[in-house]
Every structure is written in structure tokens, then in C-alpha cells.
Design a protein around this nucleic acid. Structure first.
Lengths: 139, 139
DNA sequence: CTTTGACCCTGTATCTACTACAGAGCTTAG
DNA sequence: CTAAGCTCTGTAGTAGATACAGGGTCAAAG
């Protein structure tokens, strides 16, 4: 399979596939006589593995580790650690974003939409915060 | 005020302050005879403004726009747009992360912790997904 | 007076995970 | 024959910092 086909079939950008190859995340595809890459079924599996991991927010380095775990067939504690770590990270991010949402909402509601920037609660509040005063969002 | 003092007072990394200066987000601080930067009160206000905006997830480019809005005193619709846009973005991110959390949780629970990687539900599931089969996380 | 340590300066490289060229060659259809 | 549309390689750019290297300055201690 040529790059373009693979890209369309898996929904991974052509350049991204090349990037994964450069990063040694997949085994080097065979080359045709003209030098074009020919992706094997194994290459596709490797790419799907990365795609799936990335869709779970697993970093490239962690993907590398997970691959090693699979290949070396050692114990799975490290795999578990990676998943747990990402889970914790996500919990934290959700909390942070929820806080942010509250803050942005109060900012958004402070806009009186009168038109003039000097009367806008958003602009005012941001300026106040910079002066060290209380603001609607971080009260 | 010297860089280090400012950094400690505001809790912004020294290099980050320099970065903001390079990006023209603050007015250039005066220089002492020896070439050292001397940060004015106005500089501090500018830095706090950026810090506050960044803490709300507002991008550097958007900070630039917000500064312009303040200075030009035009209408505030653009400020409102920026806040709304970020609010939408955050709503979306929270949704995405919640989905991710569910997926990672099922992966995490599939680890039987028997020790061997080949028996680990995480490793198995990730491998299965790569083969195109169903996985615990994206069922 | 010299040395030490803590600052400051500039410029550049690094990080993550891609994305986007430029400039060239190959292949296929008209 | 030519043009479109693919492929190749190498390199640069993105956001928002962060981390040096290699030098200068300053204040206090010995």
C-alpha cells in the first residue's frame, strides 16, 4: 500500500505517518523499485496502535514504552502506571477546566454589550486584575 | 525592580518575562547604567495582565488583541468574542476529556495485575485495537 | 586585592506532536 | 509531449515557554 492509500484508510495525515517513521515508532516500510514506500499489513497494525494510543492522550514516549512492554513480555506494571498516570492527569485537567469555565462565564456575563470598550465588564475586569484589584473571575 | 525581584513577586519565570518582552507584549523596561533592566510599575501591571489572561487560557495572540481593545477604546464586541470562543473551547475540551476518562478507566480496570504483560488487559486491549478488533476502551 | 557566588546580559537550542513547505523525480491519462 | 498528481528528501515553522552557553557585573568575604 502506498502512503496516500494508508493515509486515507486510517485517517492519519501523510506527513504524520512519515513523522512516526522518522521517530522509529513503526518498522521501516519496504521500498518498491522506484523508491516508493510500500506499507505492509504489519505497518498498518503499528500505525493503528499509535493512533489508538494517541486518541487516548498517551504521549509518543509512552507509546514507545507500551510497544516495548508488548514486545518484551515483561510484567505489566508499567503499562498500568502509564494508564493510571494519564487518568490522574485527565482528572486534574477536567478540574482545572471546570474552574476556568466558571471564571470565563462570570467574565462573559460581565459584558454589558453597550458597545463601548471602556464600559465593557470584560475589559474593565481584566484591567482591574492587572492592577491587583479583585476581578469578577478570580474573586 | 530587577528581573529576579519581579519574577519572585509575580511568580512568573525569569525567562518567561524575557519571552513576553521579546514578543512585544510589554513595553520595553528602562535600562540601568550597567545595562540591567529596571521594571517600572507599569511593566508590572502589563505582566500581571498577561499572567491573568494566560491563567484564563487566553492565547498570546488574544492577549495582544485584548490589549489593543483596551488602548483603542473601540467597541467591546471583540473582547466578548474572545471570551465566548474560549468558553466554547473549554466546554468542548471538558467533554472530550470526560470521554477519555471513561475509556482510560475501562482500560485501567482491565489490568488483572497478574504480573505478566501478555495477560494484562491493557496490553491485550491495545494490541487488539491495533488489529482492528473491538477494545475495552472504544467499544 | 582577589575571589566567590549570585545576579545580569545575549543568542540560540530544545521541548511536543505535528504541519507545511521547497525542489526534485516518477507515473499515468489525455 | 505535457500536465496533473503522486512520491521522494530535507528543512522550517507552530505555541509557549524552558534551558542552556558564554560572557559581564556586583557585593561581600577572606
Amino acid at each position: 500500500m502506498l502512503r496516500n492509500e494508508v493515509s486515507k484508510k486510517l485517517g492519519i495525515d501523510i506527513e504524520t505517518i512519515r513523522f512516526y517513521e522518522k521517530e522509529n515508532l513503526i518498522s521501516k516500510p519496504e521500498r518498491l523499485e522506484n523508491g516508493y514506500r510500500s506499507y505492509s499489513k504489519e505497518n498498518l497494525v503499528e500505525l493503528k496502535f499509535i493512533q489508538h494510543c494517541r486518541s487516548l492522550g498517551v504521549s509518543i514516549e509512552e507509546v514507545r514504552t507500551l510497544k516495548d512492554i508488548q514486545n518484551l513480555s515483561t510484567d505489566c506494571s508499567q503499562a498500568n502506571l502509564i494508564i493510571e498516570k494519564n487518568l490522574d492527569l485527565i482528572e486534574q485537567k477536567i478540574e482545572d477546566l471546570k474552574n476556568l469555565r466558571v471564571q470565563l462565564k462570570s467574565l462573559s456575563e460581565s459584558c454589558f454589550k453597550t458597545g463601548a470598550a471602556k464600559d465593557c465588564g470584560i475589559v474593565k475586569s481584566l484591567a482591574q486584575a492587572a492592577q491587583g484589584e479583585d476581578c469578577v473571575c478570580h474573586s
